[in-house]
Design a protein around this nucleic acid. Sequence first.
DNA 1: TATGAATGAGACTTCATTCAT
DNA 2: TATGAATGAAGTCTCATTCAT
Lengths: 194, 194, 194, 194
Amino acid sequence: MSKEQKKTEIFRAARKVFYIKGFEGTKMEDIAKEAGIGKGTVYEYFESKKQLFEETVVYSCEEQGRIIQDILERGSSLKEKIRALAKCQAEMIKEHMPIVRMMACSKIIAREMGAVFMEHNIRVGEIIKKQILQAIDQGEVRAEINPEIASAAIMGTIMQYFGKKMICTEAMPEEADYDKIVQVLMSGIGNETG
Amino acid sequence: MSKEQKKTEIFRAARKVFYIKGFEGTKMEDIAKEAGIGKGTVYEYFESKKQLFEETVVYSCEEQGRIIQDILERGSSLKEKIRALAKCQAEMIKEHMPIVRMMACSKIIAREMGAVFMEHNIRVGEIIKKQILQAIDQGEVRAEINPEIASAAIMGTIMQYFGKKMICTEAMPEEADYDKIVQVLMSGIGNETG
Amino acid sequence: MSKEQKKTEIFRAARKVFYIKGFEGTKMEDIAKEAGIGKGTVYEYFESKKQLFEETVVYSCEEQGRIIQDILERGSSLKEKIRALAKCQAEMIKEHMPIVRMMACSKIIAREMGAVFMEHNIRVGEIIKKQILQAIDQGEVRAEINPEIASAAIMGTIMQYFGKKMICTEAMPEEADYDKIVQVLMSGIGNETG
Amino acid sequence: MSKEQKKTEIFRAARKVFYIKGFEGTKMEDIAKEAGIGKGTVYEYFESKKQLFEETVVYSCEEQGRIIQDILERGSSLKEKIRALAKCQAEMIKEHMPIVRMMACSKIIAREMGAVFMEHNIRVGEIIKKQILQAIDQGEVRAEINPEIASAAIMGTIMQYFGKKMICTEAMPEEADYDKIVQVLMSGIGNETG
DNA sequence: TATGAATGAGACTTCATTCAT
DNA sequence: TATGAATGAAGTCTCATTCAT
């Protein structure tokens, strides 16, 4: 196995444990066990716990960024894209605990992480914003809509609803959920005729 | 100073430090210093770090719950209530770091905290949901809207937008922001005429 | 209550707790509670825990010395005296845990206590030895017997037998026990005719 | 070095320090230093101070039991056995501080140790008692002698005399001492002709 | 290269002692 | 005089890191 492959394996193990236990709550031994290697071996690939954490965040962010980018490029309408994004997020929440947790917990050493984390957050926002702008061009979104807020609404609604639903009920979202989210986001909740 | 007052002082100090550093990253001495007392004194009021953390979460949740309840009862229309809620959240994010952080970090010891945390999360969701139902009755929100999702959309959008904005720019939201959020939430982003 | 009376009350409380928990295992608060006073009050009478301990040992030793002296002076024959001594020791073991424990545990800070403790041990030995010499004079004990060893045999046998019996069975010794001890000590266990 | 050998090394270091300073008076670092290892290493072999103490007592008791058993089986007459036992105890007192101290100090956490300690105490008593019964059979000890008391007399006299002598004078017992002890125990101190 | 036994800095916690009331 | 809230030194224990194998 190449050095790079091994690092990736450690990243995946580290991410899993950091997600669950947070930075300070994670023991290097936990990560080593999760990766199925010896404690000392981790130090062959990473200088310190802090470095491993930082690189794990970078790795995770980049991976997530790539996945989201892919997802969004594949959809044709914004509605479809929102559905796809929601599904992707649900999958992520399910697969390795809410990314929210990672993000929030990464604040633990926010001062050091600052740049990396912000950069990622902005990147995902930008990706969604770009889709919004495209959708405005195509007449799918009203021109007067602020793309920043639209982007926040999309991401925020998805995360809040699925986060809560999946944590509370430990059930996966159903197809109907996606429809309702798209509806709320596209048409709002207000009664224009009222 | 009464025993209860002293506990409250420690709660406020503890919350501040836990917010910034997370559970494991916080030293009891940090909290003591923040509260302007000796390390041993904290142990006169709380049996252990874990107990202090749990009670701090309860305290914070209850306080936040009370504040949100007050805020929402004061507004007359849902639009006003959303604005008020957004202002309140912005204030909170500013005042003592995003509650999101607290909540997310509290997951670190989720197993033990379980009930308390879920209860709070559900409580805030319920408070907003009730407002939605009321707004449906009053014809302000469309009847076919799912109140769960509407509630998630409101909370999620506010948190996502202000969280990002305030963390990135460290600036307070402007009045215009509230208008735009209300607009997006009430009317959606879709171009119905398109 | 006079200062001296109060000190005596604290001595009795301290002895009780020190017996059970040893020097390091005893908290000043335990002693204060046992004496029915406040923690700070103990410091009105004793400068430190160590001083209190040392004075408590002195107090206990002197009290025990006085009691043993009394006991031994009252008996007329050595047999009677051994019986009385055994009864007295049994009472002591019962009343406030084996003095052995005190003595042994006091070794914890043996370096500091040295003199006091040794002095007491020697004093009791001397008291018994004097009785032996008297008994030799009166023809009750054989002249060739070494008084040091006789003294050790008396004390050792009593402590070992009752200590074990009372700790194991938590029962008080019976009259017959005293007879048997006296017999073993006076006549030995050997079969001279054998 | 095998794991078991290392544990034994720690046992010996722990016993030495516990003997001198008692349970509460002993620091884990003291034991580590005595064993010539790091503080953390002790925790590789024992979960906690309490566990180490308990296992050390068990180890010590078992070792002592084995030694005493050996000693007693080797002698032919009871007189010889008493001499051997006395020598063995003197050696023990000298070698690693009076076992009495250990036993007595172990009472500090008597509740937890209970079974182990009592078991040992009884075991040694039983070993001696068996020798007494044998000696009665062989006509060396009078038939009417109570073996319990005889056993207590032997152990008690030896411990009391040597304990005091060695602590006071820090000198080893002489050959003559053993003779006198045997004499007192076998023939008693009484003047039968008197 | 891979390992895990060994380490010791640093955390949580206890408790002797102080001191304002 | 009597108290107990407050304190911080010091102990137990954890775990990131090292290094001999």
